[in-house]
């Protein structure tokens, strides 16, 4: 080394204060990784195209629907719940319900096992951070990135509605939209936590991805079909003799369907985005049915009424997420550092 290098080779001793909590440093790096990764752009494109292209084609229909809505305060939310009858595409919220799990799994399935594969885990864990900082940081990073993607998509749809259709949202609608966004973030976290669990338990990233997408297919596409079939066997509504019987059988089959987290998300979304939905379930007695019909006479729920209606759904989703995350966390804390 040269004399000049000698001279500069004496950096002052770093004042090692308490490192800015480890999980943040991990999250920062992971976010940078995600945002520069190919998968981020692929998923962004997919989600963007799939949400916006149908909207574009359906815009005329939406415009006419929006103008027909008696209460113009809700014209804006129609953008998110409108499903055109001529083309078979789901409403935006239905679409998010199906694609968000894909996002969650895609950003987490290789979180821990890739560190093992690259041999970086022992080095990472020998830095002055707690072991859970790694899991927490990775979870936070995935959540941040997906939230940004979701906000961007919702923003584009809203912008489309405002600019192209000239629908300006009311304050109430903005609140409902934000609440729905929060619900969607919870929905994504569930899948992120599930992906994280897979990345801890399954040593090979490719296997973890396969399992993750398999479960996604099962839940998002075949799940309601299969559970519907089971419900049809357990509670055959068609065989009901009286209206009362039919109603109680319907209620039973709805409960069975609600075992699927996707159902929970979809029901909650419907209530949040549409103030005219006054109940999550079909009434199970004739008395309730009458009451429901009276309410349905053009009555709109306030935001707190809607929120009250779906809070069990939200709690269930959060509990599921917490369970997945805790399982990933506990497994990771107990695992050997070397593979």
């Amino acid at each position: 080394m040269t004399a000049e290098a000698q001279a500069q080779a004496q950096p002052a001793r770093a004042v090692i204060s308490r490192p800015p909590s480890g999980w943040r440093v991990v999250a920062q790096k992971e976010i940078a990784d995600h945002v520069s990764s190919a998968r981020f752009y692929v998923l962004l494109l997919m989600l963007g195209a799939a949400a916006i292209v149908p909207l574009y084609f359906a815009s005329d229909a939406i415009r006419s629907v929006a103008s027909q809505v008696q209460d113009t305060r809700n014209a804006f939310l129609v953008l998110f719940i409108y499903a055109p009858s001529d083309i078979p595409i789901p409403p935006v919220f239905g679409f998010v319900g199906i694609v968000a799990p894909l996002l969650g799994v895609a950003f987490a399935f290789d979180a821990i096992n890739s560190e093992r594969a690259e041999g970086t885990l022992p080095r990472l864990l020998s830095q002055p951070i707690y072991r859970d900082d790694v899991v927490n940081g990775k979870f936070a990073a995935g959540l941040a990135v997906i939230t940004i993607v979701l906000v961007a998509v919702v923003g584009v749809i809203s912008g489309f509605g405002i600019v192209r259709l000239g629908i300006v949202p009311s304050l109430g609608e903005v609140i409902r939209l934000l609440a729905w966004l929060a619900l969607s973030v919870v929905w994504v976290s569930l899948w992120l936590a599930f992906g994280l669990l897979l990345s801890v338990v399954i040593r090979r990233a490719a296997t973890a991805a396969l399992v993750g997408f398999g479960v996604w297919l099962l839940v998002a596409i075949f799940g309601q079909l299969i559970v519907g079939l089971i419900a049809g066997i357990v509670a055959p509504v068609a065989s009901a003799g009286t209206i009362g019987e039919a109603l109680s059988l319907t209620a039973l089959s709805e409960t069975i369907l609600r075992l699927l987290p996707l159902t929970l998300y979809q029901e909650a979304s419907r209530v949040l985005l549409n103030p005219s939905v006054t109940t999550v379930a079909t009434p199970s007695t004739i008395g309730q049915l009458q009451q429901w019909q009276q309410q349905a006479e053009g009555q709109l729920l306030t935001f707190d009424q809607s929120a009250l209606l779906i809070w069990p759904h939200v709690v269930a989703l959060i509990a599921l997420t917490a369970t997945c995350f805790a399982a990933a966390y506990v497994r990771f804390m107990r695992q050997e550092v070397r593979a």
Partner: peptide, 15 residues
């Protein structure tokens, strides 16, 4: 990345 995990701040870390 290691430097940040150890709480080293920017210029110091670079040195």
């Amino acid at each position: 990345y290691t430097a940040r995990l150890n709480g080293l701040v920017e210029e110091e870390a670079e040195e």
